[in-house]
């Protein structure tokens, strides 16, 4: 191999005819070649994607349309050297395919496949002349790497943007503190309680107790699937802090998993007032506050 290589180097050195100007011609030549064989190369690429089991989420028609535009964008970047249009396209594409569950490895995978398909076709075209092939690859590889890089980064950026957006949305509707009767608050918790949400919950609850002058708070965690140890601890601390502010907390809807977590971490649960469901919790809260709810005779439900 080494011998071959030095030979090639010698050969190319022996051809002073290929000077700087020809080098500049290489990329346009290459682009012309890729344009010329567009249909064939694109089909080959599509079949490679299919073989590699990538992009399950897309229909064949969509695949056709997307591969065409990715291909054209790709060649255009090779030609102009400017990745801006591709960046824009990649972001747009990501926006469309992320909600459909396309993974990062798939996107990177198809771009690398295209890079490979095109490189192979270049090998085939220039196989007679190693010196030329070397220089063609010198021109092609950096551009191709740049493209792969751009697409991957755009995809990940877009993905992070979506995640951030969703986090904001969750934060906004995260922890409502609802007054249901005078001096009685309800705090329904729905969805996973992480550290950040737990912190927010504490803050909202404690300030809520002050502003509503609450004496009893019902925290309903029917909608919370599970909590980890630190969040469970945080929850217990929140209950204690509420007590310091003169409010008693009733926790309802503890799932078996959460009950197990609480017992396992060994926190002092003797002061925790828990009741099976929200209905029971409200009844207990009303009792504590001295309310009696009486159904009028003859009303519905009898």
């Amino acid at each position: 191999m080494d011998e071959d290589h030095s030979l090639v180097a010698e050969v190319s050195a022996d051809f002073p005819a290929i000077d700087r100007q020809d080098e500049d011609q290489l990329l346009p030549q290459l682009v012309a070649h890729l344009r010329e064989h567009r249909t064939k190369l694109r089909q080959e690429w599509a079949s490679r994607i299919h073989d590699a089991n990538l992009l399950h989420a897309m229909t064949p028609q969509e695949m056709g349309a997307e591969t065409t535009s990715v291909y054209d964008n790709y060649v255009e970047v090779l030609e102009t050297g400017s990745v801006e249009a591709l960046q824009h396209y990649a972001r747009d594409l990501s926006e469309r395919i992320i909600p459909r569950g396309v993974e990062t490895h798939e996107v990177v995978g198809i771009v690398l496949l295209l890079r490979d398909v095109l490189a192979r076709s270049l090998f085939e075209k220039y196989q007679r002349d190693f010196g030329l092939l070397n220089r063609v690859l010198d021109a092609y590889e950096p551009a191709a790497n740049r493209i792969a890089n751009t697409v991957a980064v755009s995809f990940v950026d877009e993905r992070e943007r979506v995640i951030r957006q969703q986090q904001d949305a969750i934060r906004e509707l995260s922890t409502p503190v609802l007054p249901v009767r005078e001096r009685l608050l309800i705090l329904p918790i729905i969805g996973v309680l992480d550290r950040e949400r737990a912190r927010q919950l504490t803050e909202q609850l404690l300030t809520g107790i002050r502003t509503h002058r609450a004496k009893v708070v019902v925290i309903d965690i029917t909608g919370a699937p599970d909590v980890d140890e630190s969040v469970a601890n945080h929850l217990v601390q929140t209950v204690d802090a509420s007590r310091l502010m003169g409010a008693s907390v009733i926790i309802t809807g503890l799932s078996p998993e959460i009950a197990q977590t609480l017992v396992t971490i060994g926190v002092d649960l003797s002061k925790m007032n828990t009741i099976g469901d929200l209905q029971g919790g409200l009844e207990e809260a009303e009792r504590l506050l001295g309310y009696t709810v009486i159904r009028q005779n003859g009303s519905a439900g009898q």
């Binding site: 504490t202 404690l206 107790i209 002050r210 002058r213 609450a214 004496k215 601390q237 929140t238 204690d240 802090a241 509420s242 007590r243 310091l244 502010m245 003169g246 409010a247």
Partner: peptide, 20 residues
């Protein structure tokens, strides 16, 4: 203050607390 106290494990023990 309430939350900081609980965090540092220094509640008021058996002493009763009220809002205001």
């Amino acid at each position: 203050v309430a939350f900081a106290m609980v965090r540092l494990g220094m509640g008021t023990g058996s002493v009763h607390t009220a809002l205001d």
